[in-house]
């Protein structure tokens, strides 16, 4: 366990080099939020009305939180590391170290996104307070939100790695990442599940959207003990499922590994 902590520490230190990159990314975040702010201002002609149970400020805060998860946790490592390692052959150095390669990539990812996420968290709160103003939020909920957010990140990382590991089988996993990107971004980030047609909603609840970004964001804007336990339960089940899938794909894939050249 200690070694994984060390991998986390080293990547964290490494990432301090890139703080200016993170700050540059803020710009696109603010632009995104500004667009949705205008969109929802237009949709809610009466500020006190509700759309599918969401007030205007809840709706905008929802987008702020999902965008924060999107920007704050998006990381090259999850998307490119495995493909790059296989293509360049540097997997030869990581595979014969006494750690699990999959856990190594996940831990490395967390080392890299920690600072980025904290920055986006501060930015998101600031943007929300300035543009929308505070919403009904009980500070004691934070304790329950932490595990939900952590699980969301871990599940997201596992799914990304499962997709990346497809490069053991196909030459490039990029198209599958693109597909996942679009599902998360278009369906999960922009609108809450409630806004989709009734027949779609149960299906959407089985997709990663529910556990990765809808769940945590919904709990921030509209907390209830009931939905907390439902989402937490769903996340735990999802986590078990992706871990089993991951280890299956990894075990089979690593045997197919093909490292050419010197």
């Amino acid at each position: 366990m200690k070694k994984y902590l060390n991998i986390y520490k080293v990547t964290l230190i490494n990432e301090l080099q890139y703080i200016s990159d993170i700050i540059l990314g803020f710009l696109s975040f603010v632009v995104m939020i500004f667009i949705f702010l205008n969109l929802w201002n237009y949709m809610y002609d009466d500020p006190s009305s509700l759309i599918e149970g969401f007030s205007k400020s809840q709706m905008i805060w929802y987008v702020i939180i999902t965008e924060m998860i999107w920007f704050g946790t998006r990381n090259k490592t999850l998307i490119n590391q495995i493909t790059d390692d296989i293509k360049s052959g540097s997997i030869a150095y990581t595979l014969n170290k006494p750690y699990s390669y999959a856990i190594y990539v996940i831990v490395k990812n967390f080392g890299e996104i920690t600072i980025k996420f904290l920055f986006y968290l501060i930015l998101a709160i600031a943007v929300g307070l300035i543009f929308v103003g505070p919403i009904d939020f009980n500070m004691s909920n934070i304790l329950m939100l932490i595990p939900v957010f952590l699980l969301s990140f871990i599940i997201n990382a596992c799914i990304r790695i499962i997709i990346s590991m497809l490069s053991f089988y196909v030459e490039d996993a990029a198209p599958f990442h693109w597909l996942y990107d679009k599902i998360i971004l278009v369906i999960g980030t922009v609108f809450p599940i409630e806004l989709f047609p009734k027949f779609l909603q149960p299906i959407l609840k089985f997709t990663p959207i529910y556990v990765v970004n809808y769940g945590p964001s919904k709990l921030v804007i509209d907390f209830s003990m009931n939905s907390f336990f439902t989402i937490l339960m769903a996340q735990i089940l999802y986590l078990i499922f992706v871990i089993i899938l991951l280890s299956l794909i990894y075990r089979k894939g690593v045997k197919k590994l093909n490292v050419n050249g010197d």
Partner: peptide, 23 residues
């Protein structure tokens, strides 16, 4: 022809890291 060291770290930190990997 391949690199395993962390490029932003000093050799000393690298060695400490690799040592800890091996418990």
């Amino acid at each position: 022809q391949k690199e395993q060291l962390w490029t932003h770290l000093t050799p000393y930190d690298n060695f400490k890291f690799f040592g800890s990997i091996y418990d």
